[in-house]
């Protein structure tokens, strides 16, 4: 008998601080599996952001730099330009990437930096108590939109994967989810593709992963997992929006 499912070696064997049912844990594992598959553990520099994924350096067995809120793509730019032999990825939430760090992600993408970006969209600011994010869905109640997000007041949710795919500097942009075994298998493939872009020197790659935040959505893990499929996948369509090298 063989072990057919085990923890990837790029992921430390430690307890995480994530809430029960938080998809950050799942997405961490998928990223670690992709690093293992490409044999990148020893040559990777992970760029962590601010949010519930702030402890990337506790959970990944790789080198990690912790950056100020939203600045991960700027730091990744410097790291990759100084050490082009290293594999460099950022891991950012939607508050981090689509709010405070909008300028950094847009310009790193537009410059076509040779980095990979993992963007975890859970439609809220998880760490700070569930405030509205640019990705919050219309009608969604958050601690700063207690009556539900209204477009006249708070504008519309932003689709980052589509938006970035419009920039000439972007080589690969896709959106995935981990709410069902089928979607999770697709998410694995999209993360692998994004990493292949960098490994093969083919340019900037971006994967948005839809994620549950049961705690701030006021749901149990099963309900939150279902909401990803029911509400988020409706608005944030899964798929590949740009794949210049047709990988």
């Amino acid at each position: 008998m063989q072990q057919v499912f085990k923890r990837p070696t790029s992921l430390k064997d430690v307890q995480t601080h994530f809430c029960p049912g938080c998809h950050h844990g799942t997405i961490h594992r998928l990223v670690a599996e992709a690093l293992d598959e490409f044999g990148l553990q020893k040559e990777t520099i992970g760029i962590a952001s601010i949010g519930c994924s702030v402890f990337l350096y506790y959970y990944f067995d790789i080198d990690v730099i912790e950056t100020p809120h939203g600045r991960a793509p700027a730091v990744a730019t410097g790291v990759k330009r100084a050490r082009p032999d290293r594999f460099v990825f950022t891991y950012q939430g939607d508050g981090d990437l689509a709010a405070i760090g909008t300028a950094e992600i847009i310009h790193a993408a537009n410059r076509g930096e040779h980095i990979s970006v993992i963007f975890v969209n859970n439609t809220t600011y998880g760490m700070t108590g569930g405030q509205m994010a640019p990705t919050t869905l219309l009608g969604q109640k958050t601690s700063t939109s207690p009556y539900g997000r209204k477009p006249q007041v708070e504008g519309y949710p932003i689709r980052m994967a589509e938006l970035l795919s419009g920039l000439d500097g972007v080589a690969f942009s896709a959106r995935a989810a981990v709410n069902s075994p089928k979607n999770l298998m697709d998410a694995k493939k999209q993360i692998r593709k994004a990493f292949r872009y960098q490994v093969e020197g083919k340019g900037f790659s971006f994967v948005e992963v839809l994620a549950a935040c049961p705690t701030n959505w006021g749901m149990n893990p099963i309900e939150a997992n279902e909401r990803v499929g029911r509400e988020m996948c409706e608005f944030f369509k899964l798929g590949t929006f740009k794949n210049t090298a047709e990988l």
Binding site: M1, V4, F5
Partner: peptide
Amino acid sequence: ALCAEMCPDVAIKVFK
């Protein structure tokens, strides 16, 4: 291994 794939805490090992 679908159970293990879905586990956010990598708490399941599968043997075959």
